[in-house]
Computed example of a mutant assay.
Amino acid sequence: MKTLLAAICAVAVATVYAAQPVLGEIGKSLQVPTDALGWLVSAGQLGYLIGLVLLVPLGDRFDRRRLIPLHLGLVGIGMLAVALSPAAWVAFAGLAFAGLFAVVVQTTVAYAAAVSEPGERGRNLGFVTSGVVVGILGSRLIAGMMADLWGWRSIYVLLAALSLLLGAAALRLLPVDVRPPSRHHSVLVGGIGRLLTEPAFLSRGVIAFFLFASFGTLWSGMALPLSEAPWHLTETQIGLFGLAGLTGALGAVRAGHWADGGKANRVTGLALVALVASWVLIAQLPWSLTLLVVGIVVLDFAVQAVHVSNQHILTAQHPDRVSTTIGGYMVFYSLGSAVGAVTTTVSFSAWGWAGSSILGAVFAAAALVAWGLGLPFVGKPRSGEPDSARHSGSVTHRE
C-alpha cells in the first residue's frame, strides 16, 4: 500500500513541476517571454494553493479512498488540456486546473499518517513523501528526455495517462477510509485559519515557506543558465541533474526514523544550516558542474529532512484533523514554491546566476532564522489542551 501511495504522490506532484527543465522549449512553442516563464510553474502552484485551502480539508470529512481517485482523474483532464494547448493561456489554465487537484498529494499523505501507528508514523511519512521528491526531481529527467525525443507535449500526455491509471488502482486496492461524523466543510476550512493562531504551527509554516522558496529558486531557474554559454546543455542533459537531487532527497528518508526517535527539531536546525551552505556550491554553476552537483545533493537532502520533520511534528500534534493540518502547512509550501519560481527567473534576467544564488541563500537563511525564533514554542501543547490529552506518539512532547 505504501508503494501505491508514494506513486500517487510522485505522479501528482510531477504535474506541477514537469515544466521546469523545458521552460525554454515551452516558451518558444507558445511565445512566452523569458521573464514570464516562471509563471508556467507558478500557475500550477497557485492552483495547488487554492486546492490546499478548499479541497484538502475534505479528507477530514469524507472517505479519502474515494477522494484520491476522483482528484487524480481531474488532474488527468488538466494534463490533457496542457498537452493539446494551442496557445499560452490554455496551457496556463490547464496547469492551474491540474494544480488545483494535484493536492491529492496531501490527501494521500494524510491518509498515510492517519492509518499509521504512532511509533511508525515518521518512517511511513518519510516513505510516502519520498514519492513527492521522486515526482519533483524524477520528472525533470523524464521530461527532458521526452522533450528531446517527442517534444514537450509528450510528457503531459504521459502524466495524464498515469493519473488515470493510478486513480483506478487506488479505488480498487486502498482500504475504505470511513470518516466519523464531522463538522461542516466550512468549519474545517476555517480550521486552517485557526491553526495560524498557534505559534508552533505558524513557525513550521514560515520555515516551509522559505524552505521551498529556496528549493524553487534552484529548480525553476537552473535550466536557464545551463542552456546558455558556456554549457549549452540539452533538455535531456539538464534533466539528468534531477538524479543528483534525487540522491540527496532519498538519502533524507532516514529523517522519518530520526523523527520517530524524538530528534525532529534538532534535525530541522542542522538541515537548514546545510541548506544555507549548499548555495555556496550551487553559485559555482558558471564555472563548475561538479560543485553544482554536490550542492544539489546537499540542498535536496536538507529540504526533504526538514519537510518530513515538520509534517511529523504537526500531525502528531493534531491527530484528530490530519488533513486540515497538512493542508494548512502546505499552503506555506505552495506559496514559497511559487515565489521561488517567479523571483528566480526575474533575478536571472536582471543579474544572472549570481543573483539567483544570492536569492536562494537569503531564502535559506530566513528559514534558519524562523526555526530559531520558533524554538520557544516547540513542545508546548495546543492552547487549551493539557499535556495528558496529547497524542502519545507526538515528537514535540519529547523535544
Rank of each mutant, 00 (worst) to 15 (best):
P181S: 12
L173I: 08
V189P: 10
L202H: 11
T197C: 06
L158N: 13
S163Y: 04
R204D: 04
S154G: 00
A223S: 12
W231D: 03
G151W: 11
L149D: 07
A200T: 09
I238R: 09
V206F: 03
A161N: 05
G190H: 03
M146R: 03
S214P: 05
W152A: 08
P180I: 01
H232R: 02
R140D: 06
F215P: 00
G221Q: 03
A161T: 13
L159H: 05
F215L: 07
F210E: 14
L233Y: 14
G239Q: 02
R194D: 11
S182R: 15
L250M: 14
W150A: 15
S203A: 13
L174D: 09
G191P: 05
L246Q: 04
F212Q: 00
R194S: 14
L211W: 15
A170E: 01
A208Q: 03
M146K: 08
L246C: 01
A223W: 02
L243P: 06
L165N: 09
T236A: 10
R254N: 12
A249P: 01
I238H: 07
L233W: 11
L174P: 00
T217C: 10
A223V: 11
L162T: 01
L149M: 11
A255H: 09
R140H: 11
A213P: 06
M146W: 05
L149C: 00
I207P: 00
A170M: 08
G190T: 10
R204N: 03
